[in-house]
Design a protein around this nucleic acid. Structure first.
Lengths: 142, 142
DNA sequence: GTAATTGCAAATACTTTGCCACGTA
DNA sequence: TACGTGGCAAAGTATTTGCAATTAC
């Protein structure tokens, strides 16, 4: 039974020593409801957070959550950084339209695990993970 | 016979209608000599370019070259964008240390072409390409 | 000659920090 | 109570643009 993912994420936050604040709850909830990577600006101005707390607060929350590997910061080519919640057992690659900027999750089985293992062995890098993005022009923009 | 890659790249520039300026030559040469993705700031302050032209010029050159798919802008998680020369038949994935920021090219055969083909068919995206990065802590930083 | 390109300076955009007040454990 | 957290405002860093002067074709 997949328990409430918001509660799961907050539990992970508590485990690493973060305090359970209203802002934290709303941030996690927002990320889960959106089910897509979001920018600091988007989050800070979102319904749940805009009148809940300052942008600096969201910024520092994101920072803490990144440090503890509860969320991840993604490149994705925009000027602003994107953040996505890490959920155990879930991994997403992305399909991004270079025209309108639309970002889709690709849930398809990711074909790079084998290469990742090879790299881990050959290079001795620790905590290895990857990010895979496909870029192109979506049918609407074409 | 692999002809001089600088000349090749400049030839491609000419084909798409760009003028052959000193700045263009030095920019291309710098990217090829470095053989790694570079940021606007790095390029603008590089030996070949710093007293050759203004940062705005480099910026606009990079922009034009991107539009014509002669270079590519990469995310790579730093705050600044990275740029890399596209060379026909060459594709690189990257291994990046989250500690010191070192960026290595992975020349290993890239395992995502098949998935890329599937996505092209299923989604109808045009001009599809991908970017694959591995992140971790390098032995030195660990 | 004409349109693309450039330099300089100013404007944006996004991120990051300082400092003191506040709330959670 | 003590220390993590939050608000507000200011600073920092990277990017982007306007406009007149210059240069490649």
């Amino acid at each position: 039974m997949p328990e409430n993912p918001v509660k799961q994420a907050i539990a992970r936050c508590r485990e690493v020593g973060l305090r359970r604040t209203k802002a934290l709850e709303e941030l996690i909830t927002t990320l889960i409801e959106a089910d897509r990577p979001m920018t600091l600006a988007e989050l800070a101005s979102s319904e749940r957070l805009s009148d809940q707390c300052d942008k600096a607060t969201v910024y520092r929350l994101l920072q803490r959550l990144c440090e503890h590997a509860i969320i991840r910061r993604l490149g994705l080519h925009e000027r602003a950084a994107f953040f996505t919640l890490l959920q155990p057992g879930k991994h997403s690659d992305y399909l991004i339209c270079t025209g309108c900027g639309k970002i889709e999750s690709i849930k398809a089985p990711c074909p790079v695990h084998k290469l990742e293992d090879e790299i881990r062995e050959k290079t001795g890098y620790r905590g290895l993970y990857h990010e895979l993005e496909f870029f192109g022009t979506c049918p609407k923009c074409a």
